[in-house]
Structure formats: structure tokens, C-alpha cells
Amino acid sequence: MAPARYLLWMVLTGLSLAQVSSEFVTADIRRAGSRLACLCGSCKNSVGDCAMLGCHYSLPARQKIASLQAQGATDDAIIDSFVREKGKVALVVPPVEGFFGLAWWMPVVVMGLGLALVYWFIQRMSKPAPVAPVEQRVLDRYKESIEKDLASLEE
């Protein structure tokens, strides 16, 4: 092997070693991983679908999932172990409990408030116009010219 190529190979292996050791994402790893956040700081994916090259978080995390699964741990147990280690930040979405539940409730609440606002608006706007309606007499006076103008617009 030519030295240049060898050097290159060294560099690239260094780059991709971590990648390779956990490249096989089985369906089981993906299922458990989809509930865990990738905390690499530059993506918003879960451990299950983070596909960034040499990701320094999701790859070791997948290995850990794999080893726990090899020991027969359930998904919940795996998630728990991650939460114990990193805190709730390890979860891909906030848990529905206590203050964190607000993350889920607020959009629903706001939607409800919005609906109430729309209802109120429709109610208020359905009342008869506050300005006095134009009398038939005024209409009669202009009707002829309106019809004429409109006819000319219709080409």
C-alpha cells in the first residue's frame, strides 16, 4: 500500500471507527432509541433515527441499548437507566407529568382559547350592524347607475 493512501486510511478510520462499531441499528434498538433524545447538541433527532456521521452521543447510546437488551432489559428499564444517568433531558419528548406536562397541555389549551375567541367573535359580529342600515330609498336613488356601471364592468 502506498504511504499516502495508508495515511489517508488512518485518518478516515479515525473518523469513522465509532460509526462502524454500532452501525447495525436493529429494529429493537430503533424502537427503544426512538424514545430517547440524541443529545449531541446539533440535531433534534432521537437516538433511534439520528443518522449523523460519527455522532458522539447516539452511537454509544445505541451500543448501551444493545448491551442492555442483550441482558434482557425491557424498553422501560432501558429508558429508566438513561434517565437515571442523564436526567429527564435524555427523553426525546417531555414526560406527561407535573410541570413538564404543560409542554403537551399548552397547545391544546391555547387551541381551546382560540376556539372560544372565534366563537366570541362570531357571536359579536353576528349582531346587527351598529350603523343604521341604508334605507331602501337611498338604494332606489342609485340603483339605476349601479346597474349601468356594473353592466359595463361585465364586458
Partner: peptide
């Protein structure tokens, strides 16, 4: 009617 109002 609205138009007539505006014209008026």
C-alpha cells in the same frame, strides 16, 4: 345597499 350608502 352598501354601495348606495357609499355613493350617498
Amino acid at each position: 345597499k352598501e354601495l348606495a350608502g357609499v355613493l350617498a
